[in-house]
């Protein structure tokens, strides 16, 4: 298969520098409001600063993929004597917690790196260099892009077999 170039976008988070101001949340929420910059609601931000002030924990985390199910187990980190809450470092929108869900609709929120902008807005507005944007290109094998639904169906077929899935689909479409 042919090699293609893929752009990798990274936000490097230097949490030791974070002073807990939450400007990243404010500007993210403003940018993603409709129309752009018309309203501010940090609860709808795609970045969240996990804050436990007296424990010296200020940890910016930005929203990753939606996960319909919780992991089978949770993680809990202790670093430099500081105990972080369960799953602190996980970016998923997951049933185990409220983080990264639109406060009105409950729909999952996901960081889109502020597509169309020079760099993500949270990075631009963080004046303490906690958030650093990096871009690089990597050569990867060209792969046929599988649509999200196809991938989901494929995993269901793997699990239950084509016949069962076909029967279930027929039954559901009959009901609908």
């Amino acid at each position: 298969m042919a090699k293609i170039k893929k752009k990798i976008k990274t936000i490097k988070i230097d949490a030791d520098k974070c002073n807990g101001c939450r400007t990243c949340e404010v500007v993210c929420a403003a940018f993603h409001s409709q129309p752009k910059y018309s309203s501010i609601n940090p609860a709808a931000s795609r970045i969240h600063v996990i804050t436990r002030r007296l424990d010296d924990i200020w940890l910016p985390v930005f929203a990753g993929e939606y996960s319909p199910a919780e992991c089978m187990g949770r993680d809990k980190y202790v670093i430099d004597g500081k105990e972080y809450d369960e799953c602190s470092f996980c970016r998923a929108t997951c049933p185990s917690r409220d983080m990264f869900k639109d406060p009105d609709s409950g729909l999952p929120l996901k960081c889109d790196m502020c597509e169309g902008e020079e760099s993500p807005l949270c990075v631009q507005w963080c004046l303490n260099d906690v958030l650093i944007y990096e871009e690089r290109e990597e050569e990867v094998e060209e792969m046929v892009q599988i649509e999200e639904m196809d991938a989901g169906l494929a995993s269901l077929i793997d699990r239950y077999g084509l016949e069962k899935i076909g029967t279930a689909l027929a039954r559901m479409s009959y009901k609908a």
Partner: peptide
């Protein structure tokens, strides 16, 4: 604890 929005009249200009 609040999870509602504050609105700006001319947000883009404000920014």
């Amino acid at each position: 604890r609040g999870t509602r929005a504050v609105h700006l009249a001319h947000g883009a200009e404000f920014m």
